[in-house]
Amino acid sequence: MAIHGFYIKVNGIKIYCETNNGPDDGNVIICLHTAGRENRQYHDMMEILQDKYKMISFDMPAHGKSWPLPGNKVINNYVDYGKFVWSVIEELGVKDPIVIGCSMGGNIVYHIAQEYPVKAICSMQGADYTPTINEDILELLNHPYVNPQHSHLEFSECLIGKATTQERKDFILWGVLSEIGITKQGDLTQYNGFDVRDKMDQIKCPVLVVHGLDDKIATGEMAEQTISRLTNCENLVYKPIPDYGHFILVENPELVSEYLDEFIRTL
């Protein structure tokens, strides 16, 4: 396998990264995982595109193999989340990155495009406004009498598209069983408070939107409403995918990789 892991230190925190060791003389793709999960979600895409693009995925603080913030704290707002993502990109020495993300990561790429100098973004299952999580659920994600891995298993399962293979469905559900309550609580708190609608007209870089239409929490309607506010970006491509859902990068990495490759070749 071409994927290799390594650590960097960002703001004093050990951050775990992986790369597919793609070409050094072209575009570099920075990959952001979904809420509560980690960078293994990108393995299939990284292998599919390894001969075309260098891709770097990483675990945000308190996710996967990365260390948490000092005092075992987590990030719980999108502004700090975006700042940390950009600090990782700077530490990696990547200039003009193409930043892609799914779900929580699909949201934050819009904020990053508003605030930082990116070459392009790709939002998968993202939106510019996602007040979709009940406050009582958020509180119970880090409660001593609640097991978040089991309490959220059926919720995550209902977000998977009907065409997803059992093997990929199993991997997605294993991701739920690997989650940390306080980390998921922080992620969904910032997801619930995510609202960058008033700055969407400031995004001028090319934007690719890939959206699995079986998603019950980040719906196709939300994607279309978000797209309607991208009034000044120089190139906007929308790729809706029927029969696949919230974890589109895992559910159908072949089609997502095809769309991403087509998009990048237009830059």
Rank of each mutant, 00 (worst) to 15 (best):
G193I: 04
N192F: 13
E179M: 13
S156I: 11
W174L: 10
L177K: 06
G181N: 08
P148A: 09
R197G: 11
P148I: 10
F155C: 04
L173C: 12
K162L: 06
W174F: 08
D195W: 09
L153S: 04
L177F: 02
T183K: 02
I182H: 14
K169R: 09
I172D: 05
N192Q: 12
I160T: 02
R197S: 15
N192K: 10
T183R: 00
E167P: 00
G175L: 02
G175K: 02
Q166P: 05
Y191D: 11
G193F: 03
K184F: 04
F194E: 14
C158F: 07
Q166V: 15
I180K: 05
R168V: 11
F155L: 10
V196M: 10
V176Y: 00
E167I: 08
Q185N: 05
S178D: 15
I182E: 13
T183W: 00
N192Y: 06
D198N: 10
R168K: 14
A163G: 03
H152T: 01
K169G: 03
H152P: 07
A163Y: 01
W174V: 10
H150L: 15
D170A: 07
V176W: 00
H152I: 00
C158D: 10
Q190F: 15
N192W: 05
L173V: 00
D187W: 02
D195G: 13
G193S: 11
H152N: 14
L188V: 03
D195F: 08
S156F: 02
F171Y: 14
P148G: 15
S178V: 08
L153K: 05
G186C: 02
K184V: 03
S151W: 10
R197W: 09
V176I: 04
V196F: 14
L153T: 10
V176L: 01
N192G: 13
G161M: 01
Y191A: 09
G186I: 03
I182C: 09
R197V: 08
I172V: 10
E179G: 04
T164R: 01
T189W: 07
R197Q: 14
D198P: 06
F194C: 08
L173N: 06
G186K: 04
R197P: 04
D170I: 01
L153E: 10
